[in-house]
């Protein structure tokens, strides 16, 4: 069984103009996989297509071998996919508690226990649970975003550039936390520009170029791969 399997996926915002063109990926249970690639390669579009935010025109997506291709975004959370968008990833007009509480009510999970588990995992959030999410600093906000996506006990957690806008120190803290999350049994796929940080925690990496997966390999191999380095050197600038 694979945790998440993407087969020859094609997706884009406008019909006839696919940004993701034949991307394939297989993620094993409890793995951390980093999706890498130059700017405009279609990484964000790919995970947004997986979670149903971008229309899929061809190919399939399987979650624990269940075909979830093309389901509406709001079904995905119920299916067991957690998603952390890159920006605007918490409800700023609700308190920390209400952010988590709402997700628990919507996904019908035992609220008290689930929130206690999450507060154990994110003690910083527990301390200020009545605070409006809009008042949180960048790092804490990212923590809340991850916690929110975890409320439904997803099988797979997808993150869109969790390091964006964070200082190197905070990136370290957030990524450490992702290792803790993995330790609870969650499979993680993250899109990252910060190749070094991502490969440091990932088991494997996949490089996306012009909308399709080109190189897939163990994280430590990719980190030193000159081919990967070359892809980032700008020959694909206009590819978006």
């Amino acid at each position: 069984m694979t945790a998440l399997r993407v087969v020859e996926l094609e997706a884009g915002y406008e019909p006839g103009l696919p940004i993701v063109r034949g991307a394939s990926l297989a993620v094993e249970p409890n793995e951390i996989v980093a999706l890498l690639g130059p700017n405009g390669a279609g990484k964000s579009t790919l995970i947004k297509a997986i979670v149903g935010l971008v229309p899929v025109s061809a190919g399939r997506v399987f979650l624990h071998d269940r075909d979830i291709t093309g389901r509406a975004a709001h079904h995905m959370a119920h299916e067991g996919l957690g998603f952390v968008p890159q920006t605007e990833n918490v409800f700023v007009n609700l308190s920390i508690e209400d952010n988590l509480d709402l997700a628990a009510s919507i996904l019908r999970v035992p609220k008290k226990q689930r929130l206690r588990d999450l507060y154990d995992l994110f003690p910083d959030l527990a301390r200020q649970r009545r605070l409006l999410a809009g008042r949180l600093s960048g790092g804490q906000r990212q923590m809340l975003a991850v916690a929110r996506a975890l409320v439904g006990e997803p099988k797979v957690l997808l993150l869109d550039e969790p390091s964006a806008g964070l200082s190197p120190k905070l990136v370290g803290i957030v990524f450490e936390k992702l290792l803790d999350v993995r330790a609870t049994g969650v499979t993680i796929v993250l899109v990252e520009q910060n190749v070094k940080a991502a490969l440091a925690i990932a088991d494997r990496g996949a490089v996306l170029v012009e909308g399709s997966t080109r190189i897939v390999g163990a994280a430590r191999d990719l980190a030193g791969d000159p081919q990967v380095a070359a892809l980032y050197l700008g020959q694909h600038q206009g590819g978006s």
Partner: peptide
């Protein structure tokens, strides 16, 4: 506040 986030939250 955020319709897209609402959708991925399952709303």
């Amino acid at each position: 506040n955020n319709p897209q986030l609402a959708r991925v939250t399952g709303i």
